[in-house]
Amino acid sequence: MDMKRSYYEDIRLFPSCVTVFWAVVLLAFLLAYPFLFKNYYVYMANYIAINIIVVVGLNLLVGYTGQISLGHAGFYAIGAYATITLMSLAGFPFLAALICAGLIAAAFGFLLGLPALRLEGPYLAIATLGFGVTITTIIGRIEMLGGRQGLHAPDLVIMGYPLDTDRQFYYLVMIITVLLVLFARNVTKTKVGRAFIAIRDAHIAAETMGVNLVLYKTMAFALSAFYAGVAGGLYAFVLRFIEPGLFSLFLSVFFLTMAVAGGLGSVMGPIAGAIVLSFLDLQLRNILSIPYVGDWLRHLSASYFSLTGVSNIQFIVFGAILIAIMLFEPLGLYGLWIRTKKYWKTWPF
């Protein structure tokens, strides 16, 4: 039994020595990762980390503040395009461009937050969905942004060091991810996070206790959009080429699926959700090259469905996961973890 002796222990980052130990292990693993795995897995780690950023940000909005967004691909696109454009046209250095891109996305998030003050549930979902779809359509029509042809990312140099490969880019992505996750975690433990939760659980009571709904709802949107914008900027340099088609409605749904599968209303849950689903996303794209299963699927698809069905199999699997989560564990992977922990606490009795 660990006894708490000060109020700070309720909110401190590492509640005990055990957590410090695991944090150090995790950090060591992250540092060693590029030396342990092949190139493809380093690319995968970058992809996963970027998704973690988006989903942690999305979760601040959906999980904590209780406002749904089906338009996060829009913020992601804004971040990606803004980063590249600021670098190639305005000559910004990468990190400055990335932060500005995040702020631009946040400004759009703030604007989207304004109608959200009057919309709830499905209406808000439709409004945000409309935003996401509109943004990519608009970007596709602007010649300066490459239109439908897309844009190539410029060379990436940070303080004189060129970052050309996934391995070199890895550490930058990881540092940003860890910082943003810690930031989100601290926000949820302090005043602003409590106001977010209060708005979700009982917004009238929150208001009568002095929480300014307009300020905090738009803040949640802007913060969440900032995360998506920064992630988008990083993603542009993982792919090195972006085009409007990348930021489709499916991507928004994918982000939301990761948040829900991981567990809304926690910081660790969405991270787990992002890891598992991003991994599946990359692996399922190659499903047709698996020896027997691939042939069988191709056969099945040719006889009963169209061939496009198989190449998009990840969406079918995600749909199934989403339904299973809703049915069996509404709190997602995080809920599963809590239950397991409770179960083993009293083991073997």
């Binding site: 926000v187 005043k191 209060a198």
Partner: peptide, 16 residues
């Protein structure tokens, strides 16, 4: 949450 009005920690000071 009842202390909301007395606290000055904003997004940045809270997050950091």
């Amino acid at each position: 949450l009842g202390r909301h009005l007395f606290m000055k920690t904003g997004l940045f000071r809270g997050g950091l």
